[in-house]
Design a protein around this nucleic acid. Structure first.
Lengths: 134, 134
DNA sequence: GTAGATGCAAACTTTTTGCAGACTG
DNA sequence: CAGTCTGCAAAAAGTTTGCATCTAC
């Protein structure tokens, strides 16, 4: 599951994802980007590597409404399993939520509602401070 | 845009959506269900009618992660805007979370983290009681 | 009678897979 | 050199479209 070898293609793809970490990137956009830069990266490679990155929790995969394809976004910090993520619907920014109160509700939901939240899969959507000012 | 004629097929499809309003139904599941019941409903009809229902706001269309297809859910007359939804990753059941403690965290996140949660778009993923027993 | 709905097959889009050859460590 | 990764092409999966036929009103 874990990527073993570093290759030029992977380096470039990850680089592109890092550069675009504030927007929703589709697999097709990545494929087309490398087509236009004379880098030859096959689409199978892009899809395979993206799936790896998702499993390693280095990028998040989203399904965006009004689009029949998945979007991918790079998550920079380590240890993202332990906290939840807020995602702004306007600017696509991801905020890592280190919050004891939320941990409290996580416990409450587990005990009182018999439901174990999944911090990796759950994304809390909303509007961030900067975007709500506009 | 509005459906004009009532047909047997449409009646059956809507009935099926109503019966399964607590889970995410895919177009494929509908198509296969009617295949197994000797009702002949072509897939084009299912897709076309689903798109109509979405436009008429009778059914909600979701994009579910880890799945390359859309899910559809019949919207009852209840006010789902006012609460959050828990979704079991195993059985796909949707639980309507009426919970004051979660409302408290919603306020906390708004005040302390400057982020306004969107209760319509946010889905809290996890494992439900029944599925965690297995 | 006619606008609208259906079913089939073909087209299209997005993603996955099989395989031979190339590359990494 | 062994285990991985890549690119290509073909295959899957999900969805839409064209068209002749059928049906509701």
């Amino acid at each position: 599951m874990k990527s073993k070898y570093n290759t030029k293609q992977r380096e470039r793809i990850l680089e592109y994802l890092k550069e675009n970490k504030d927007s929703n990137i589709t697999a097709d956009e990545i494929i087309n980007y490398f087509k236009s830069t004379n880098d030859k990266i096959g689409k199978a490679t892009v899809y395979r590597y993206l799936n790896n990155l998702v499993k390693e929790n280095i990028v998040k995969k989203y399904m965006v409404e009004n689009r029949n394809c998945s979007c991918y976004q790079y998550i920079e910090e380590q240890n993202c399993d332990s906290h939840y993520h807020l995602k702004c619907e306007k600017c696509n920014k991801i905020i890592h939520l280190e919050c004891d109160e939320f941990k409290g509700v996580e416990n409450h939901i587990a005990k009182e509602h018999d439901f174990e939240l999944d911090s990796v899969k759950t994304v809390l959507y909303g509007i961030c401070k900067e975007c709500s000012k506009k």
